[in-house]
Amino acid sequence: MDFLVFLGIIFGIIFGAVKGCESLHSSSHGVNLICCSLDAPLIETCEYTSFCREHCSCFLTITQHLECAFKNTSDSKKFKFLDHQTSAGSQISCRDPNLPNPTVPYTVVIEEADEKKTYEFLLGMCGYHVTSLTLQTYSQLFDQLDFSTCFPDLASFQIISPTRKLASFQKSLKNLRNLTVLSLVNVDFEFWLSEPPFIENLNYLHIENSTLSEIPKWFAKSQAISDS
């Protein structure tokens, strides 16, 4: 292949990806969304302008005021997140939130929102490129989610609960491959016996105020354990 042709393909891929990265700040129905693109920065008056330091990424916060409909809407009526404008559409669909930039890294923070709506919203995000998930509360409903299928690139999973919560993680975390950070505060659980795919990638482990009775032997392969 001619070198100039090769360069053309590479630049086409890079600039094509950049072009598809939409920057915006939208806050509606209990969802606060910031998407950053250094090539198309947020407007100067936006309070989150200095927050954007990465080339292309989105930061999503689900607040306690989350409002989303359990039924799906037609394509013509889908809610659309718009930059500093009143978003089109009457209500967000939990199972189809229609978030922009689905292929860019998403950092998701969940506050103490309605458990059922949050569960449905996370299901609706299956297939989005979620790399970090932090929950300020936890519901056993979330144990039914297979994060390895929904968010296979999940690298950071944290629960920072103000009150004690019971969790299983048998389905939700067990099959993740790319997890590097695991932090659990005020969570009562037990690790499973079989070795998870993420064990050799894990480099940070924090467990605080938990009924966890023992660390399984497979943790010996973890960088987080061997370096401590």
Rank of each mutant, 00 (worst) to 15 (best):
C58K: 05
C58Y: 04
C58S: 15
L60N: 12
L60Q: 11
T61C: 02
T61N: 02
I62A: 09
Q64N: 15
Q64W: 11
L66A: 05
E67I: 11
E67G: 02
E67M: 04
E67L: 13
C68M: 05
A69V: 03
A69F: 02
F70T: 04
F70I: 03
F70K: 12
K71A: 11
K71F: 07
K71D: 05
K71G: 01
N72E: 13
T73D: 06
T73V: 05
D75P: 12
D75Q: 13
D75R: 14
S76P: 01
K78Q: 14
F79D: 04
F79Q: 07
F79E: 10
K80G: 06
F81N: 03
F81L: 00
F81S: 01
F81C: 02
L82Q: 15
D83E: 00
H84D: 02
H84C: 06
Q85W: 00
Q85G: 00
Q85F: 00
A88C: 01
A88Q: 11
A88I: 03
A88E: 14
Q91E: 14
S93D: 08
S93H: 04
S93W: 01
C94W: 01
C94R: 02
D96Y: 00
P97V: 10
N98C: 08
N98V: 04
L99F: 11
L99D: 08
P100M: 12
N101I: 01
N101R: 09
N101D: 10
N101L: 04
N101C: 08
P102G: 14
T103N: 12
V104R: 05
V104L: 07
P105R: 10
P105F: 04
Y106R: 03
T107V: 07
V108R: 12
V108H: 13
V109C: 05
V109H: 14
V109Y: 13
V109W: 09
V109F: 06
I110G: 12
I110T: 14
I110Y: 09
E111A: 14
E112R: 10
E112P: 00
E112T: 03
E112N: 12
E112I: 03
E112A: 03
A113R: 06
A113C: 04
A113D: 06
K116R: 15
K117Q: 13
Y119R: 00
Y119L: 08
E120W: 06
F121N: 10
L122E: 03
L122F: 06
L122H: 05
L123N: 09
G124W: 03
G124D: 09
M125N: 07
M125E: 04
M125Q: 09
C126T: 06
G127Q: 11
G127M: 10
Y128M: 10
H129M: 10
V130K: 06
V130G: 10
V130L: 10
T131V: 15
T131M: 13
T131E: 15
L133I: 05
T134Y: 02
L135I: 03
L135N: 14
Q136V: 02
